[in-house]
Every structure is written in structure tokens, then in C-alpha cells.
């Protein structure tokens, strides 16, 4: 690898992730668990609003929109083939169509990340506008808090899954240059 290609002085290979298949499997399990925590947190807020809610505020479809955004963003981000992304756009590759493929992958990945971030921001927005600005006290406020917890957990699960998919085993080496 020639060193003129790097943009920054500290290149990313200095902080390479530890290579282990066990760690990778654990990360995948952990991401599923985090997603479950988020999912059940928002289900909890919906059931709470239906069963023991004393106030007149209820969970409506508006509260579900950030969850839907985050989940679809997570689906998009993690179903992208990652070897498409790092094809260098400057080099002329002889295989036809590789460059447009990389561009499509980047655009779709950007869409996925913006859906994830939009989900988290939307949960904060629902919390502030629907609950915090109307000065509700805590048992009612908990429905908004669990919405934030849900979206934060889904985002964290996506991060954990992304990181653990970048962990390589000791034996396999990637042939995609």
C-alpha cells in the first residue's frame, strides 16, 4: 500500500479491531439483544398507555414513526454488501459497472444512516413536543422516555452489528482488493 493515498496522518489501520470469531459472534448476539430491548421498550410504552395510563395522553401512530424509521434504516444499513463501498473511484477498473455500483451502494448507505439518525432525532422531537412542552409529570413522561430509549437502542444495535461485521477471523482473508 502506498502511503500517499491517506488523507490523514493517523490512518485507520492503527486501530484495527481484534480478530476473533468468538468476539464477532458475541457482537452479533449483542446486537440482536439490543434490538430486542428497543423493540420491547416501545411495546411497553404502547401497552402502558392502553392499560394503566391515568392521564389522557395516549401513544398514537406518531410515536411509532421514529421506530419505523430506525428499523428500516437498520435493515438498509446492514443489508449492504460492504465490499462495494471501498472501491476506489479514481482507479480505472476493468470490470464494467463497478463504479456505478459503488455509487449506488454509497447513496443507499447514506439513506440508511440518515433514516437511523432521523429516527433518533424524531424520537427526541416527539418527546419534547408531545410530552415535555406540555409539562407532564413522570408516569406520563415515561412513554416519551421509552421512545427515546427504543431508538437509541436500535441505533446502538446497528453500530454493534456494523463493528462486529468488520471483525475478521484469523483464517479468512478478504480477496476483494
Amino acid at each position: 500500500m502506498d502511503h500517499s493515498n491517506h488523507l490523514f496522518r493517523f490512518n485507520a489501520s492503527m486501530l484495527r479491531l481484534p480478530k476473533s470469531a468468538k468476539l464477532r459472534a458475541f457482537g452479533v448476539y449483542l446486537s440482536g439483544a439490543l434490538f430486542a430491548i428497543g423493540f420491547w421498550s416501545i411495546i411497553d410504552s404502547a401497552v402502558y398507555s392502553k392499560s394503566v395510563n391515568a392521564s389522557d395522553v395516549h401513544v398514537t401512530f406518531i410515536d411509532w414513526i421514529p421506530f419505523i424509521c430506525s428499523t428500516s434504516g437498520m435493515l438498509i444499513v446492514n443489508s449492504i454488501e460492504k465490499s462495494n463501498l471501498f472501491q476506489d473511484s479514481n482507479t480505472t477498473n476493468f470490470m464494467s459497472g463497478g463504479n456505478t455500483n459503488a455509487w449506488a451502494a454509497r447513496v443507499i448507505l447514506f439513506l440508511g444512516f440518515s433514516l437511523l439518525a432521523g429516527g433518533l432525532a424524531g424520537s427526541f422531537m416527539v418527546f419534547i413536543i408531545k410530552y415535555l412542552l406540555k409539562h407532564y409529570t413522570f408516569p406520563t413522561l415515561g412513554m416519551g422516555v421509552s421512545n427515546i430509549v427504543c431508538n437509541a437502542c436500535i441505533m446502538l444495535s446497528c453500530i454493534v452489528l456494523w463493528l462486529s461485521q468488520n471483525i475478521e477471523d484469523e483464517y479468512s482473508y478478504s480477496l476483494a482488493l
Binding site: Y29, F35, L161
Partner: peptide, 11 residues
Amino acid sequence: CKSSTGFLIVS
């Protein structure tokens, strides 16, 4: 499948 296993256990 691993991810959905983690999902189901926590569920």
C-alpha cells in the same frame, strides 16, 4: 440467525 437468537432470548 445469531442476531435473531439474541432477539428472541431478550424477548
